[in-house]
């Protein structure tokens, strides 16, 4: 068990623990805190997957913008919702999760046994891949091959801004 593996296990526990807290907790504020923990855990996993740029972008965008936005909404709506009741109990939820996972394992096993030889194999990598994907490469990719998704996402952001402005004007114009 090297130090790297121990940190890796802690990261995975943080990710899954945060996801559990986000889904199972009684109050919205704790759900949001669980979501933030999950996002930090996923940022850690991105570092293990050789992409530090993506890890920092995950923290900047998700934790820095999206989670703060959700937190703002929780605080403006919030003081009435400290402990909403859930529809199912925790026991039923865990049982549903277990059944879903077991059936998924059986399905995957069936697929692997039937079609196992023709599926693409994972490449067992050496410690450092020979070609490091840096920020410059991702930038080049955006301007050479993925120009269309890039333009579409800028269009999407413009539409989202316009929608948000319209919603704000609706809420003010109803008075």
């Amino acid at each position: 068990m090297t130090v790297g593996e121990i940190i890796f296990l802690i990261t995975i526990v943080a990710t899954l623990g945060g996801a559990a807290m986000a889904v199972l907790s009684g109050s919205i504020v704790y759900a949001m805190m669980g979501l933030v923990t999950t996002m930090f855990g996923i940022a850690g996993l991105y570092v293990f997957l050789n992409s530090p740029f993506l890890s920092m972008m995950q923290i900047l965008i998700y934790v820095g913008a999206v989670s703060v936005l959700i937190a703002f909404a929780v605080m403006l709506i919030g003081p009435l919702y400290r402990k909403p009741k859930e529809w199912t109990t925790v026991g039923k939820f865990v049982a549903a999760l277990g059944v879903a996972l077991v059936s998924l394992f059986m399905f995957v096993r069936f697929v692997m046994e039937t079609f196992g030889d023709t599926l693409p194999q994972g490449v067992p990598l050496a410690e450092n891949p020979s070609f490091e994907i840096t920020t410059k490469e991702i930038g080049r990719l955006f301007f050479n091959n993925l120009v269309l998704p890039f333009e579409l996402i800028s269009l999407l952001v413009v539409v989202a801004i316009l929608g948000a402005i319209m919603l704000a004007l609706f809420s003010r114009g109803n008075k």
Partner: peptide
């Protein structure tokens, strides 16, 4: 990685 950046943008919007 590039597509994950696009997914982050979609999630934010």
């Amino acid at each position: 990685m590039a597509f994950t950046l696009i997914i982050m943008g979609i999630a934010a919007a």
